[in-house]
Simulated scan of single mutants.
Amino acid sequence: MIADSISQGFQWNFNENDQEFSLHGSLRPQRSEEMNSCISALESSVSSVSGRFYVNVRRLVRMNNVAFHAFAGKILDLVRGRSDLKVHVTTSSVVGWATRKFAVLETMSENITVGEYDNEFYPGQTFLEEGGFIPILRTQTKLTWRHERAILQRHGLEPGLQVADICCGIGDFAVLLQKEFQPDRLVALDHSRSSLDYARKVATDFGIRGIDYVFGDASEMLLESDQFDFVTCRHSLQVFDRPELILQELLRICKPGGRIYITNEKNSHCLGEPRSESIQRTYNEVARLWAHFNMDIELGPKSRRYLIDAGLEDIQMESFMVTNLDGDPQDFADIIQSWEDVYAGKMAVERGDSEEQIREFRQGFQDHIFAAKHPRGYAGWPIWVASGRKPK
Rank of each mutant, 00 (worst) to 15 (best):
S7V: 11
G9R: 07
F10S: 05
F14K: 07
F21P: 08
S22M: 10
L27S: 05
R28I: 15
Q30K: 15
E33V: 12
E34N: 09
E34M: 13
I39Y: 00
E43I: 00
E43P: 00
S48V: 03
L78D: 01
G81D: 14
D84G: 12
V87L: 04
T90L: 15
S93H: 14
A98Y: 04
T113A: 15
E116W: 08
Y117I: 11
Y117N: 12
N119T: 14
Q125V: 12
Q125G: 09
T126A: 15
G132N: 10
Q140Y: 02
K142L: 08
W145Q: 02
H155R: 02
G156M: 06
C168G: 03
F173D: 04
A174M: 03
V175Y: 02
Q178F: 02
P183R: 02
D184F: 08
R185V: 00
A188P: 06
E220N: 09
M221Y: 01
M221Q: 02
L223W: 03
H235G: 04
L251K: 12
G257W: 03
Y261S: 02
I262Q: 00
C270V: 13
Q280F: 06
V286C: 12
L289Y: 07
I297N: 05
L299K: 02
G300V: 01
G311W: 03
D314V: 03
M317A: 12
F320L: 07
T323R: 07
G327F: 06
S338M: 13
W339P: 01
W339G: 00
V342R: 10
G345L: 08
E350Q: 15
G352M: 13
S354W: 04
R359E: 12
F361D: 03
A371G: 09
P391Q: 14
